[in-house]
Structure formats: structure tokens, C-alpha cells
Design a binder for these strands. Sequence first.
DNA 1: GAGTGGTATTTAGTTTGGGTAATGAGTTAC
DNA 2: GTAACTCATTACCCAAACTAAATACCACTC
Lengths: 146, 146
Amino acid sequence: MPDLIHDGDSAAAVSSLRSAVMLLGRRLKHQRVDESLSPTEMSVLGTLARCGSATPGELARKEHVQPPSMTRIVALLEAKGLVRLEPHPDDRRQKMVSQTEQAEAMLAESRTKRNAWLAQLAEGLDEDEWETLRAAAPVLEKLAHL
Amino acid sequence: MPDLIHDGDSAAAVSSLRSAVMLLGRRLKHQRVDESLSPTEMSVLGTLARCGSATPGELARKEHVQPPSMTRIVALLEAKGLVRLEPHPDDRRQKMVSQTEQAEAMLAESRTKRNAWLAQLAEGLDEDEWETLRAAAPVLEKLAHL
DNA sequence: GAGTGGTATTTAGTTTGGGTAATGAGTTAC
DNA sequence: GTAACTCATTACCCAAACTAAATACCACTC
């Protein structure tokens, strides 16, 4: 196994990555498209859009949140008509959570608004820098889900 | 001005970037080296390490938190002996915040532990992916501070 | 088929970390 | 010298996560 991150450059990169991710994350929290939806609620909708449907437990693991938190989030989303809860076919302990059409529409709108915000931010980057970021996006996503 | 992010690929990258940053940010929050230090407190120490010293107001702007939050953070850091407060030379309203030697030592230890955590995560990436991320780190940091 | 151990979700209560509004002290401009 | 502004702070509030405990269900053993 290559000793990926134990040289000086990579150590610096790790530090840089960490602080940038945390700072950007904090700023993104304030850019919510729908004031009534928390960042994690948005993220759950995103996950459902990718994965189809899932149980609360699966969602909690994917979002790295404790099960009770996911219970609350799912309940709020259901109250807003953004997800549907159905009984699990094989296991009556579990539930199946899936998004509604309303959620899909909201996600599309949200994507547009988020892009506008990031576009404004990205105007401070030059073409090369943006290209670098574009290449890194899928890798970052993979890393986040490891 | 180049229309950086309005093609399909870039829109996808933006979405990907956002969810990855938020998820990674949430996971990083849990990887605190010192249980008694919040992520933002760590981030403030990092900023001080880079910038030397700063006033609470400057720190608040750099970390994108409100001044009262920074007051509280600085007070906690001072109580832990990690920062020193001195009167501002020219303006008696302001204060100068700088890190102590103890903070420097803690940051070094923290860096080691963080690297270990990220190393474990990064083992799921191949060499090319890590290289991509390494290149992106400074750009992400620039973006976060724009 | 009753009992036991384990898992999924939920309920209740707590912590935390940040925000807004209002205050006090100090500076700057007129 | 006073009015307007800025920096830091104080007091209060809220959102969103957590832990621990309770409930409902499954699976396996005897």
C-alpha cells in the first residue's frame, strides 16, 4: 500500500482540505433554498433521489447521523409532504422512505439556486482552478462516503 | 467572464461538491482531537497559526461567524490557555488575539491525529484520486475564503 | 410454541454551538 | 464638542444534533 499522505506536501494538503471543507460547509449551511429545510434534510432528499428508497436506519448510516436524529428528520419531511413512508415488505420493524414528486420538483429548483450561489463564488476562480475542482468533485464525494 | 458552471458537467460537479463537502464536514466534526475543543475553535487556532494575530472582529469575518460567537470562542480558548489577549496598540475598543505555545503544540499533535484518520479514509482511494484531491485542496481553500 | 438475544425505530431529555437584539466603551467626522 | 459610527460584549433564544431508555419486532433455541 502506498504511503499516500505521510510526506510533507500531502500533510499540508490534508490540513488545507480539512479547514476548507469545514469552512465551506458552514457557509453552505446558510445558503438554504427553502428556509424551512435544514441542510441535513436537504441532504437526505438528495440521497433518496440517488438511491430510490431506503429505511430510516440506512439513511442514518449514509448521512452519518444517529438513528433518533433520522427519525426526527424523516418525520419533518413527511409532515411537509416531501417523503412517503410505507411499511417494509419483509420486516414490520422497518419502514420504507421514498421521496414524493413534490420533493423532486423542489430538488430541481434547489439545484438551480445553489448553482447560482456557487457560480458567484466561482467567479473568483480562474478557468484552471475551476477545472481542478471539477475533477476533484467525484473524488471528494467518494471520500465522504468511505 | 467565462460561463464557468452553466454546462451540464459543471452543474453536476457543483451538486456533487456541495453534498460531499457537507457530508465530509459533518464527519470531520466528530474527529476532534481534543474532545473539549469544538471544530470552530480548532479552526480559529488554525487561522491564528497562519495569520499570527488578529482582532476578534477579524476572526469572526474570516470564520464567517457573528462577532458574539467569536467573543465566546475566544473566551473559551483563553480559559484553556490556548490564546492570549492583549490590548490593541492603536484602538482601545479592540483586542489582539494570538496563540500561545501550548496551542502550537496542540495543533501539531492534532495534525498528526487528523492525518491518521484521513489516511485510513484515503486508503479507499487510489493514487490518481489522491493526487487529484491534493491538487484541489488549495483551490477549495481559496473558494471557501472568497 | 415459549423464551431469549438481537435489531429497528421511536420517545424523552440534554447539550451544544450558533444567532439576534440591545448595551457600553471608544473613535471619527463634522 | 457632539453626532454618528464601529468594536466588543452581554443576555437571551433556537435549531439540530446527541445519549439513554422504551417499544415493537424478528430469529433462533430448546
